[in-house]
Simulated assay, not measured.
Amino acid sequence: MTGTVVAGERQKFDALAARWWDPDGPMKPLHRMNPLRTGWIAKRLDGVAGKSILDVGCGAGLASEAFARLGAHVTGVDAAGEALAAARAHAEAGGLSIDYREGGPEDLLAVGEKFDAVVALEVIEHVEDRAQFLGALAALAKPGAPIFLSTLNRTARSFLLAKLGAEYLLRLLPVGTHDWRMFITPGELGAALRPTGYRITELAGMRMSPTGQWSETRDLGVNYLAMARR
């Protein structure tokens, strides 16, 4: 276990591994959100075919598989071993070659690998040492390569919608999935990135409709995507 992810968070997502790929299961919101997230990233990379992408906190591989199906060379890393086992089994069944590794981004630094893009989707709100985490992401990116993050803004509205609404009222997520105190504002994310030499160059909000479909919006008040470059 590396030093950035809270141990309880790893155990939480390990417990969900068996149903991660059930589109109507506990990860249903991520299944619905995934095309928006990965499409937004692919567009800003002018396509991902032939490019190396590191998916940090990949879980059971929703984003990793989406990028792989678009022709990217994908490495996925996660501290949750059970989730990674589900990722490997699902990729093999789908005929996809994805390099899944157990651990955190810090564990990849020792082998000196660099990637054309580094993504961390719905991860930083589960991270204990954000400075170390973002420093590792930056160190794993090739010169000029972007970093992409998606996360939750810490606002009164996100507490009502993403915490109380999603977990307790609508039961879209298991109770305890998120700790609202760990949510991060775009300003805080930008400040945390600054020591790495990266700055946020683009932000987009993500909005869920009453039917559960996700779309891009200018409203950053709940879920948002960020691209950062040196």
Rank of each mutant, 00 (worst) to 15 (best):
W40R: 10
W40K: 06
I41L: 04
K43E: 14
K43D: 15
R44E: 04
R44A: 08
R44P: 12
L45M: 15
D46Y: 10
G47H: 03
V48I: 15
V48R: 10
A49Q: 14
A49E: 13
A49S: 13
A49H: 08
G50A: 04
S52H: 14
S52G: 13
I53R: 01
I53A: 05
I53T: 05
I53D: 00
D55P: 02
D55K: 05
V56A: 12
V56Q: 13
G57D: 07
G57I: 00
G57A: 09
G57T: 05
C58D: 03
C58A: 05
C58I: 02
A60R: 02
S64I: 00
S64D: 01
S64E: 02
S64C: 06
E65G: 12
E65K: 06
E65I: 02
A66K: 11
A66H: 12
A66N: 10
A66D: 14
F67L: 01
A68N: 06
A68I: 10
A68H: 03
R69N: 00
L70V: 05
L70K: 13
G71D: 12
A72I: 12
H73F: 09
H73I: 14
H73D: 09
V74K: 08
V74E: 04
T75D: 00
G76H: 03
G76D: 09
G76L: 06
V77E: 05
V77T: 03
V77A: 10
V77K: 11
V77P: 10
D78L: 05
A79R: 11
A79E: 08
A79H: 07
A79G: 15
A79V: 15
G81T: 14
E82Q: 15
E82I: 01
L84Q: 05
A85I: 07
A86N: 07
A86P: 10
A87V: 03
A87Q: 04
A87Y: 01
R88K: 11
R88A: 11
R88L: 09
R88N: 06
R88C: 11
A89E: 07
A89F: 07
H90Y: 09
H90A: 13
H90F: 14
H90C: 08
A91H: 01
E92R: 13
E92N: 12
A93D: 10
A93R: 15
A93I: 07
A93L: 14
G94L: 11
G94P: 01
G95H: 00
G95K: 02
L96V: 04
S97I: 12
S97L: 12
I98Q: 05
I98L: 07
D99V: 00
D99M: 10
Y100S: 04
R101W: 07
E102K: 09
E102S: 12
G103Q: 04
G103F: 00
G104P: 08
G104Q: 04
G104I: 06
P105V: 08
P105G: 15
E106M: 13
E106D: 14
E106K: 02
E106V: 05
E106L: 09
D107N: 06
D107E: 12
